[in-house]
Write a protein that binds this DNA or RNA. Structure first.
Length: 874
RNA sequence: GGACGUUUAGCUCAGCUGGUAGAGCAUUCGCUUGACGUGCGAAAGGUCAUAGAUUCGAGUUCUAUAACGUCCACCA
C-alpha cells in the first residue's frame, strides 16, 4: 500500500492538493483540436459583486459534471468561465460604500467613479472565481473573461453599430420603467409585480361649460397633475354625447378634452379613465393616438417636479396625501375605496417603479423575435425540460421593444456622439472627432451606459473572439449546452438566442438545460432578508465539495426546485466515506501483490455477476447523462456501489481473498480493482476529488482519472446466466437471514443448511457464499431432504431446511407459513386469472404473457413447497 | 384573466417510451461480522390528491375537480 489511509475520508486534506494537481497538469485547458469533436459550455457569468451561494453551487456542479463527462469521453471539452460587471448591482454597492465616506458619485465625477469601480472589481471580482474553484470546477481559467474587458466591449460596440445601421436600435421619448432609487431606467423584464393594499380614489372632473361633472377613479391621484385628457369608450351610450367637451382639471385648472378610445373598458369602474401619458404605458399609447401633450410631473428621484405647481419638490406619496386632502376640501373627492392591486417594483432594490416618459435607447424587437422563436420550434435549440419552450415562446411573441440605456456609469458607454453644433447623432465603433455632417469638432458622447444584459446576450460568442473570426470561434461555436436556472430565461436565455441568430447566424447553443432553485429545508427561497441562506463554502469546509455536489445532484430532476438540508449533506458525506472505505479495503488487499487493472482469465460466478451488473450501469448511466438525467445517473451509481459492490461483492470476495488458493485470491483482487476503477470513473464527474485521490492510489495507467477514458458498454461483458444464478443464491441468503433475524438467532450461532433445488449446480457453486453470508456451518445440496423438525425456508428456486428445531416455536412457525402460503396463493390466483383472460393472452406481448406463465409455474412450486413444509411441521 | 408545475411510505423526493411501487432520513429489532457504527443484517410503513375515460392492464396516457406553488398579463 502506497500510504496508510485514514479510517474516514478527510476532504480538507485532499481537495486543494488535488485541485492544484489538476491545474498544474493543464487538464482544464482546451485548444482547438481537429482530431476531436468540440464540446463547449459557457458559464453563466456570476456578478463580480456576488458571493457564491447555493444557486451557483448547483449551476456549477451540473456544468462541471457535463464537462468532465464529455472530456473523459474524448471530446475537446471547453468550459469557459468569466464574470459579469452587473452594472446596477455593482454601481449600487459602490455608491453605498461611498455613502459611508460621505461622498456622492456626482461629487467625484464620472472618471473618478469609474476608477473606484475598477478598483472594486480588482478587489472583489476574483473572490467569486476562487469560490468557484473550491467546488472543483474544471473551467479553463486561461480563458477567463469579463463582460467589460476589451474583447467583450468590442463585441458590444459592433452589435450596437450594426443594429443601429439596420434601424433596429433607435432613440426616442418613450414611457419606460424608472427606478427612483437606482435613478435609472430599467427594462420590462426587470420589473417585478406583487400585490399591495391600495386605494381607489373616486374623483369628479367638472365640465368647462358648467354642465356638471364626470366621475372617474384612480389608484394614483398624484398623477393627475400630468393629466392631459379623460377618456371613455366610443360606444358607451352613457358618454357618447359628451365626447369632445372640455373638462377643467381640478387643482391644476388645465383645460383637457374628453376623448373616446377603445382602450377603455366600459364595465370597469365608471367606464371613465383619466389619461396621464407621461406616467402610464397605456395612457401613453392613448396620448399618441390622440396627439395629447405629455406632461412629465416627476423627477428622477420620484419627487414632483416643476410641472407640479404647488406640489413641486414633494415626494410622490406626500404629494398624493396633500392632493387628496385638497380635492376633498374642494369637493372633487367622491369616495375612497380600499383595494388590492399589483404594484411593480425594481428587481434589484425593491423600490416601487414609476412609469415615466424619458428619452432612451431601444432595440426594436419584432424583427429579432421571428428567427428566435423558430429556432426553438424547429429544435435547433432544445429546452430541457421542454415545458419551458412554451413559456419562452409566449414571452417572445408578446415582447415589447427593449429599453437598453441606463443612467449609470459602470458599464458599456453607449457608442453614440452628438454634435453640439448641428445636432447630428453619430453612432460608431471608434470615437469620432469630427461631425461628418457639419465638420464640427464639438462632439459629446452619450452619457448613458447599456443594460448589463445587452453584453450578457453576446456572451457565448463575444468570449470566443467575435466579431473576429478567430480559430476559437470557428471551433467552439456554437456552444453545446447552456446550464442555467429557469429564473433568467427572459433576462438572458432568450436574449442570447436572438442575439446569436442575428449576429452569427447560428443559435448560440443546441441545448438549454434548466435547473430549479435551491430552497431551504422548509421549501422557502434562500434569501438574505430571511437569513436562511446556507453558505456553500461552509458546507464544503465541513463535509467536502464532493458531498455538497452529491447532495445538489441527487434526487434532482431538470427544471424542478430542490430542498437543501444538512441531513442530506450528511448522507452524502457518508457515501463519500463508503467509497473511501471500499477503496481502503481493496488497497489493503492488493498490497504486496502485483495487480493489474484488468479482468482475469477465469471469472467466478460472482465475478461474472458483478461485471455484468457494472456493465449494465455503464450503459444506463451514460444514457442518463445524455438525457440530462443526472439525478437518476447518480442514484444508480450510489445503489451499484453501495448495495451491489460493497454489500454483496466485497463480502463474497473475502472468501477467496482469505483462502489458501492463491490464483483465486489473485482473480478476486483483479476483479475488485477493475470494477472499483470503472466505478470511480463513472463517479468522477459527480465527485471529482475523492475519485481522483483514490484512483491515484490504485493500479492505473495515465496521469489522472479526470483525463482517463469514460467506460463504454461492452456486449461481451454480459453474463445473464451468472446473473440469474447469483439472484438465486442471493435470494437464498436473504431468506435465511430474514428467518434467523425473526427468530433472533445471533450471527455467531451457525447452523447447517440443507438446500433442495431443481438447479443443484447453482447452489453447489454458491455453497461458500451461503456459508459466509447466511451464517451456515455447512451446506448440503440435493433434490430432496426430509429433516424432522427443521425450519423450512422457501425461495423461488429452493427449499432450505435448517435443523434448528430447538430454537423454534412450532406454532409461530406454522402461523407464518400459513400466512406466506395465503400470500403465495393469492398471487398465483392473480396470475391464473390473467392467463385465463383471453383478451390478455391475445393482446399482450408474448414476452409479458410468457413472464406471467413462468411466474405462475414458480408460484405453483412455491405453494407445494410451503405445503410440504407445513406437513413436516405438523 | 392566461399558462405551467407539484400532489407517491412519518419527512425529503426518484420512478424513461403503460406490465401488480423505490431510495435517503426517521422508526423498530438484532449485530464489535478483520474496509467502513459516517457501519452490517432484518422489519414495519403506500387503495401513488379526487372522479371519470382509454386499455387485457395506468403512479405512468386523456378529461374534469381540489389544494399548494410558479410565471406571464395588469382594467385606470
Amino acid at each position: 500500500m502506497s500510504r496508510e489511509l485514514a479510517k474516514t475520508y478527510d476532504p480538507q486534506e485532499v481537495e486543494d492538493r488535488i485541485y492544484d494537481f489538476w491545474l498544474s497538469g493543464g487538464y482544464f485547458h482546451a485548444e482547438p483540436d481537429p482530431k476531436k469533436t468540440p464540446y463547449t459550455i459557457v458559464i453563466p457569468p456570476p456578478n463580480i459583486t456576488g458571493q457564491l451561494h447555493m444557486g451557483h453551487a448547483l449551476d456549477e456542479t451540473l456544468q462541471d459534471i457535463l464537462i468532465r463527462w464529455r472530456r473523459m469521453q474524448g471530446y475537446c471539452a471547453l468550459w469557459l468561465p468569466g464574470t459579469d460587471h452587473a452594472s446596477i448591482a455593482t454601481e449600487a454597492k459602490i455608491v453605498e460604500a461611498m455613502r459611508g465616506e460621505g461622498v456622492t458619485k456626482e461629487e467625484i465625477g464620472r472618471e473618478a467613479f469609474l476608477e473606484r469601480a475598477w478598483d472594486w472589481k480588482k478587489k472583489y471580482g476574483g473572490r467569486i472565481v476562487e469560490q468557484l474553484k473550491k467546488l472543483g470546477s474544471s473551467c479553463d481559467w486561461e480563458r477567463e473573461r469579463f463582460t467589460l474587458d476589451e474583447g467583450c466591449s468590442k463585441a458590444v460596440r459592433e452589435v450596437f453599430v450594426r443594429l443601429y445601421e439596420k434601424g433596429l436600435i433607435y432613440r426616442g421619448e418613450r414611457i419606460i420603467n424608472w427606478c427612483p432609487h437606482c435613478k435609472t431606467s430599467i427594462s420590462d423584464a426587470e420589473v417585478e409585480f406583487s400585490e399591495h393594499d391600495g386605494c381607489f380614489w373616486h374623483l369628479r372632473y367638472p365640465f368647462k361649460d358648467g354642465s356638471g361633472y364626470i366621475s372617474l377613479a384612480t389608484t394614483r391621484p398624484e398623477t393627475m397633475l400630468g393629466d392631459t385628457a379623460v377618456a371613455v369608450h366610443p360606444d358607451d351610450e352613457r358618454y357618447r354625447d359628451l365626447v369632445g367637451k372640455t373638462l377643467i382639471l381640478p387643482l391644476v385648472n388645465r383645460e383637457i378634452p374628453l376623448i373616446a378610445d377603445t382602450y377603455v373598458e366600459r364595465d370597469f369602474g365608471t367606464g371613465v379613465v383619466k389619461i396621464t401619458p407621461a406616467h402610464d404605458p397605456n395612457d401613453f399609447e392613448v396620448g399618441l393616438r390622440h396627439h395629447l401633450p405629455v406632461i412629465n410631473v416627476m423627477d428622477d428621484s420620484g419627487n414632483i417636479n416643476e410641472n407640479g405647481g404647488a406640489y413641486a419638490g414633494l415626494p410622490a406619496l406626500e404629494a398624493r396625501r396633500r392632493i387628496v386632502e385638497e380635492l376633498e376640501k374642494q369637493g372633487f373627492l367622491i369616495k375612497v375605496e380600499p383595494i388590492k392591486h399589483n404594484v411593480g417594483s425594481c428587481y434589484r432594490c425593491g423600490t416601487v417603479v414609476e412609469p415615466r416618459v424619458s428619452k432612451q435607447w431601444f432595440v426594436k424587437m419584432k424583427p429579432l423575435v421571428g428567427p428566435a422563436v423558430k429556432s426553438v420550434l424547429d429544435g435547433e435549440v432544445r429546452f430541457v425540460p421542454d415545458r419551458f419552450e412554451k413559456i419562452y415562446d409566449h414571452w417572445m411573441e408578446n415582447i415589447r421593444d427593449w429599453c437598453i440605456s441606463r443612467q449609470l456609469w459602470w458599464g458599456h458607454r453607449i457608442p453614440a456622439w452628438y454634435c453640439a453644433d448641428c445636432g447630428e447623432t453619430i453612432v460608431a465603433r471608434d470615437e469620432p472627432h469630427i461631425c461628418p455632417k457639419c465638420g464640427s469638432k464639438n462632439l459629446r458622447q452619450d452619457e448613458d451606459t447599456l443594460d448589463t444584459w445587452f453584453s450578457s446576450a453576446l456572451w457565448p460568442f463575444s468570449t470566443l473572439g467575435w466579431p473576429d473570426q478567430t480559430d476559437d470561434l470557428k471551433y467552439f461555436y456554437p456552444t453545446n449546452t447552456l446550464v442555467t436556472g429557469y429564473d433568467i430565461i427572459f433576462f438572458w436565455v432568450a436574449r442570447m438566442i436572438f442575439s446569436g441568430l442575428e449576429y452569427t447566424g447560428k443559435a448560440p447553443f443546441n441545448t438549454v438545460f434548466f435547473h430549479g432553485l435551491v430552497r431551504d429545508a422548509q421549501g422557502r427561497k434562500m434569501s438574505k432578508s430571511l437569513g436562511n441562506g446556507i453558505d456553500p463554502l461552509e458546507i464544503i469546509a465541513k463535509y467536502g465539495a464532493d458531498a455538497l455536489r452529491f447532495t445538489l445532484v441527487t434526487g434532482n430532476s431538470p427544471g424542478n426546485d430542490l430542498r437543501f438540508s444538512t441531513e442530506k449533506v450528511e448522507a452524502s458525506r457518508n457515501f463519500a466515506n463508503k467509497i473511501w472505505n471500499a477503496s481502503r479495503f481493496i488497497l489493503m488487499n492488493i498490497d504486496g501483490h502485483d495487480v493489474k487493472n484488468e479482468l482475469p482469465e477465469n471469472l467466478a460466478v460472482e465475478d461474472r455477476w458483478i461485471v455484468d451488473s457494472f456493465n449494465r450501469v455503464v450503459g444506463e448511466v451514460t444514457e442518463n447523462l445524455e438525457h440530462f438525467e443526472l439525478g437518476i445517473a447518480i442514484a444508480k451509481l450510489y445503489d451499484f456501489l453501495w448495495d451491489e459492490f460493497c454489500d454483496w461483492y466485497i463480502e463474497i470476495a473475502k472468501i477467496r481473498l482469505n483462502s489458501e488458493d492463491g490464483a483465486a485470491a489473485q482473480a478476486a483482487r483483479q476483479v475488485l480493482v477493475w470494477v472499483m476503477t470503472g466505478t470511480l470513473k463513472l463517479l468522477h464527474p459527480f465527485m471529482p476529488y475523492i475519485t481522483e485521490e483514490i484512483w491515484q492510489s490504485l493500479p492505473h495507467e495515465g496521469e489522472a482519472i479526470m483525463i482517463s477514458p469514460w467506460p463504454e458498454y461492452d456486449p461481451s461483458l454480459c453474463f445473464p446466466h451468472a446473473a440469474a444464478q447469483m439472484r438465486s443464491i442471493m435470494d437464498a441468503v436473504r431468506a435465511v437471514r430474514n428467518r434467523r433475524s425473526e427468530m433472533n438467532v445471533p450471527p455467531s450461532r451457525k447452523a447447517r443448511l440443507s438446500i433442495a433445488a431443481a438447479d443443484q449446480e447453482t447452489f453447489r457453486t454458491g455453497a461458500a457464499i451461503l456459508e459466509r453470508l447466511a451464517y451456515a456451518s455447512a451446506v448440503e445440496v440435493g433434490s430432496e431432504f426430509d429433516i424432522e423438525g427443521a425450519v423450512t425456508i422457501v425461495t423461488p428456486d429452493a427449499r432450505i431446511l435448517i435443523p434448528m428445531d430447538e430454537l423454534v416455536d412450532r406454532k409461530a412457525e406454522l402461523e407464518r407459513l400459513t400466512k406466506e402460503l395465503a400470500s403465495a396463493q393469492k398471487q398465483y390466483e392473480n396470475a391464473q386469472a390473467k392467463l385465463g383472460n383471453e383478451k390478455f393472452t391475445a393482446k399482450a406481448p408474448v414476452s409479458v404473457v410468457e413472464g406471467v406463465r413462468q411466474n405462475a409455474a414458480k408460484l405453483q412450486e412455491h405453494i407445494a413447497l410451503l405445503q410440504s413444509a407445513m406437513e413436516a411441521l405438523k
